[in-house]
């Protein structure tokens, strides 16, 4: 990973790295060398998104009322019954 790609991704992830970015980039490139080993492997299998074939279950799309909304909101800063967030 070159520095330009690295900085682009760090920005997209909104991660402040401060002084340790050189060390992180060097660690990441060492890890990518390990990942690059899979270039040598040739397989034609279908991708395994899950390890076990479990049939997908879908729920009915029906609105539900939750009785613990107040409790959930205790984990956030609120104004009336709105969650407070940053300015857009």
């Amino acid at each position: 990973m070159d520095r330009v790609s690295f900085e682009k991704i760090v920005e997209a992830c909104r991660l402040p790295l401060e002084d340790d970015s050189e060390k992180i980039l060097s660690d990441l490139n060492e890890i990518l060398e390990v990942f690059d080993k899979i270039d040598k492997c040739n397989v034609a299998d279908e991708p395994a998104f899950h390890p076990v074939g479990i049939p997908q279950k879908l729920r009915e799309d029906i609105p539900k009322t939750f009785d613990n909304v107040d409790k959930l909101l205790e984990n956030t800063s609120t104004y009336r019954f709105y969650v407070v967030g940053p300015k857009i």
Binding site: C13, R14, P16, N75, T76, S77, V83, V84, P86, K87
Partner: peptide
């Protein structure tokens, strides 16, 4: 702002807010 009350400044812009939280 969704999980736990982070000690962050709601007065900042969107990107600064997220960067501070994710630090």
């Amino acid at each position: 702002f969704k999980y736990g009350k982070g000690a962050v400044d709601y007065g900042t812009d969107y990107n600064t807010f997220f960067k501070r939280a994710r630090a």
